[in-house]
Amino acid sequence: MVAFIEARNVLQERLQRVFSEEVFSQLFPGIQIPKVFFGFPKTEPPFYVAVDEIVDSLETGRGATSGHAEITFPLHVWAFAQHSSLRVASDTLLTYLHTIIYSVLADPQLDFTVDNSTLTIDNAGTATDSSKYYQAAASVAVQCTVYSVCPAELNNAIRKNAIRKESNGD
């Protein structure tokens, strides 16, 4: 099975560990620690990071070995900061992005759940709101790649079906 769930869980646990008093406050004193959520939070706090609960796209490629396709899928991470100062909101968000990117680059195999991962920021922006706060938000895509997928668990079922069809003369 493609390790969607395992890779996502490793990413979320890693962000929870990094965005903590012990780690984040030591690296970036004075910057608000964001809450880390699984999925989009029901009530948005002013500072948060959320890991998308599902994979929303996937591509297969040629693969490293014959008949074993390469698979690439993104895990999305959203980061959000809200403050009455545009500079504080922006600087806080950029610090979150830095931390997310380094957290992945420190181990792009995500505890061996995938073969490699690369990063892109696929959306970002700032906006005012009616409360006179500024919001800064970004979506990071962690592009996970498995070089050579071996769908062995389904091979037998598919082959048996093919053999049955052959013996029936279909």
Binding site: A127, T128, S131, K132, Q135, A137
Partner: peptide
């Protein structure tokens, strides 16, 4: 709210931003 610095021109009723139009 009153203590927060203003983030809009005087008289503005809305603004387009990266998040779309905000009223």
């Amino acid at each position: 709210y009153m203590l927060r610095p203003s983030n809009r021109p005087i008289g503005a009723t809305g603004e387009s931003s990266d998040a779309g139009y905000i009223h």
